[in-house]
Design a binder for these strands. Structure first.
Lengths: 349, 349
DNA sequence: CTGAAAGCGCTTACAG
DNA sequence: CTGAAAGCGCTTACAG
């Protein structure tokens, strides 16, 4: 019966039928016991459970998935660039998703989307190949045309953090526009008029919307925005550092960076240029990374609950798996954004 | 035949047999074509591939896994506390692992290990349940007794970043001891004699070994280590900040923090206590997180290639899956550790 | 070169 | 209350 042992330490898998024959019951009975079916009387249940324990039996999730037509897995797609620029953002997002999937008995498989990945519609593939029952797609690009295809598919699929232009898909996110507006308004309330903006990536809705919020606050305050006041920082320390130099040329008295990491880059550039923060130039960031309160000076920023936002996306697809009828509006509200005043803006303690 | 459509947008799965019948070949032929079997002539291949494309057929990885007895998945276990204290470390590790698994055609499933998880030997479970073909276990605790059980199991399993006491398992890691020694020696070479140490978590080998490296450097230089010079920082900003205060009471002139994040906490505490860095107190960290060069002042630290280390763990299990004969020594060398001198220690530019 | 058939290890109506 | 049987969707010897 048994093959010759494998090279290093054979391991023979214990199957359900092994448990069944040891207990002298049928395999169906074992299966029913394991799925907690109330039809099985207690003594049979106990007998089976004991054998399971003694034999260290673990049902194959693969066979189970095939029979159940569900892998009990959530696919999470993060952009490739994330692996370079702002780890904290995506790590927090993964944390938020995992905190929902693990208790629900779902596994989380993580894929990084590069260009090829997107062109091959890997997100759809994950679903069609049955690798995942649902997908949370983090940081979709505004220009991602392929996503329109997902509208027609009846798979549980949700965007998180960023939505795509003209695509009617559910998206869990924070209020980028309002958060950026809050930050800018705070600087305005401190008397600043020449406020520079270091933008995130405008390929993403959060990048565009944060710039929108900044512009809206300026407009409402009757302040003009010079073209030279808006510079790209690409979520990158180096880039935002360089961007800061050009803002200094443009004579701004305050800088709003669309992500804390970019604010760190800005602060370093200011320091190297011999400017004091906030005396010479005030700085405000966004996202409230843990480190921000430990910066020198501590960074005023907008709290934006990344983990919560991503967790909501996970909750949503989980619910959708259970009842495919659920509509978009069940996603619920956006996590609240909130101004956290520290000393980098000159308005705090 | 077909059931009534699902509530919102039915989706009928295309199976291999559908492709086969459209091409008027057998299902085996389709299977062979898809696995690139050279026996199939080109025209048949083309015919099948066209049908696959036209029908948007995607083979079920679940069925395939069952038939192949392999899920083509690597399980990655990160500790629960990671979700709180030092995201960058674990994010980089995930990046390193994914950079190996994705090209190899493996999926990466991520699990966070809490206490219950460990007690239930979830790492073994992942393997037995066939959820993963191999497991990379990040940051095992020194005291993790359960790991001895894995020695007997013939599964591809490797520790990364930290090993467990008295457990003979392969471990991919950087040279914690030597790196810490380097950092300490640098401070010594700058003339410091009263050097404080903020420790990582001593539950982990990296925490213990970094302390070991510090002590060894001191010993070799003939310097005594006062008990009050060694304080725990738990990888935490807050904790290391508090630890720094007690080091100031102990009159140290330099601080070596066993992880950059703790160095950030220390710098903040020093600043708040009115001490200048490095004039009053020099600071050195470890791990060279990207942010460290943007701190104020830029942090002198030890480069420790986290992504590379974790990638090596992945490479190892991948190779082990292919040939179970591979022995521990095939893991290769540790990524090089290297002193990066910046200005926080007073010895740099 | 290609097909029929067994098998991977479960779940789930359906009988009894 | 429990078992025999079909089925999930593939892969892989084995024939021919």
């Amino acid at each position: 019966m048994s093959k010759e042992p494998l090279p290093s330490g054979s391991r023979k898998r214990v199957r359900m039928r092994d448990v069944a024959s040891r207990c002298e019951v049928s395999i169906s009975t074992v299966s029913l016991v394991l799925s907690g079916d109330p039809r099985i009387p207690e003594d049979t249940t106990r007998k089976v459970l004991e054998a399971v324990k003694a034999m260290e039996y673990r049902p194959s999730v693969i066979a189970r998935s095939l029979a159940r037509r569900s892998s009990r897995t959530i696919g999470v797609i993060i952009p490739e660039f994330a692996f370079v620029n702002n780890p904290a953002f995506y790590y927090l997002a993964l944390q938020g998703i995992h905190s929902q999937t693990q208790p629900a008995g779902f596994k989380m498989v993580v894929e990084a989307a590069n260009k090829v990945f997107i062109e091959r519609r890997y997100h759809l593939r994950l679903l069609k190949e049955q690798s995942a029952d649902a997908v949370v797609y983090l940081a979709a690009a505004l220009s991602d045309k392929f996503l329109t295809e997902m509208e027609k598919e009846a798979y549980p699929f949700v965007l998180a953090g960023s939505y795509a232009e003209g695509v009617n898909l559910v998206c869990a996110r924070g209020d980028d526009f309002f958060g950026a507006k809050l930050a800018t308004q705070h600087l305005i309330s401190l008397g600043h008029k020449a406020i520079g903006f270091i933008g995130g990536n405008a390929q993403f809705s959060f990048g565009r919307d944060r710039e929108g919020g900044y512009r809206e606050a300026m407009r409402q305050a009757g302040l003009l925005v010079e073209p030279s006041w808006v510079v790209p920082g690409d979520m990158d320390l180096q880039k935002s550092s360089e961007a800061t130099l050009s803002l200094l040329d443009a004579k701004v008295t305050a800088i709003f960076a669309a992500h804390d990491v970019m604010a760190y880059g800005a602060m370093d550039a200011l320091r190297k240029a011999g400017r004091r923060i906030p005396t010479d130039v005030a700085v405000v960031g966004m996202d409230d990374l843990e480190m921000s309160s430990w910066m020198n000076p501590p960074l005023t920023t907008i709290r934006y609950d990344i983990a919560r936002m991503a967790g909501q996306a996970a909750k949503f697809v989980l619910r959708q798996i259970q009842s495919p009828l659920i509509q978009s509006n069940m996603l619920g509200e956006m996590p609240e954004v909130k101004l956290i005043i520290r000393s980098s803006c000159g308005g705090g303690k």
